[in-house]
Amino acid sequence: MPLRHPIRWAAAFYFVLIGVAFVVDALHRSAYEWKAFYKYIFDVRVFKAAGVTLSLTAISMFIAIIWGVALAVMRRSPNPVFRQVSWFFIWVFRGTPVYVQLVFWGLLSTIYHSFFIGIPDIHFGHFYLGIHIPISQTASLYWLAIIGLSLNEAAYMAEIVRAGLLSVDEGQEEAATSLGMSWWTTMRFIVIPQAMRIIIPPTGNEIISMLKTTSLVTAVPLITDLYARTRNISDEIYNPIPLLMVACAWYLFFTTVLMFIQYFVEKRFARGHSVLRVSHE
């Protein structure tokens, strides 16, 4: 006879009961305005806004991962200049709130009027040795949001990647070095692939976190993302609740898809390890 679990069954029954009661109640509660929810969930404006949220997440995360790996590798570099630059960047961008950083990026054109790359004081008539990049007042808020999100996230990614690199046994680097591999070849083909197994689960977490953090871009202020757009529509119909539900539904849909992707990617990078670090309970 297998062991019985009466307490488990009782607990499950109890929570299902609460859940059903909540849903039945919610379906009849007028404040939710389900009609409005159904009307707007596939509204073309909401659809577009969901696209903006998704692209903000994807592009910011893409930049953050590349820059984060670079920062983490720099921190281990034999070159002390790289180590210090990396440390300083992480110190600043991890040490201040992302909301505040986004407000700062929004004010970029107020603080700096143009970028100049080159040698400032040398010119022949109107020809300068360098290029001027004006930051117009209409600098794309979309890209400022991406810069803000990705630089902040890169600081966190750098710490995640660093932990991954530290998890790889020292002997691996020695073996690679003794084969005549350069420091970079060793990193690229020996250390980083092994670190991936440690890096991927928290990175999946960061992507999900980023998806939700995009709701702060209103600080820039960018108002085309999912949260800002649904707030905007709810102002038209004088009821914020159904559109909050719409936003939640979309966020939840995206994070669910991301969780599935994470599961399969983790499986892929567990190669060579007989025990997959995924719970089956």
């Binding site: 046994d169 002997g171 691996q172 020695e174 073996a175 690679a176 070095t177 003794s178 084969l179 005549g180 591999m181 350069s182 020996i190 692939p193 092994q194 190669r271 060579g272 390890h273």
Partner: peptide, 20 residues
Amino acid sequence: AAQRVGIGMVFQKFNLFPHM
């Protein structure tokens, strides 16, 4: 690194690359 190519080394803990 070029010098090390000509000198093979075998370690106590093998140090094989586990992902290969």
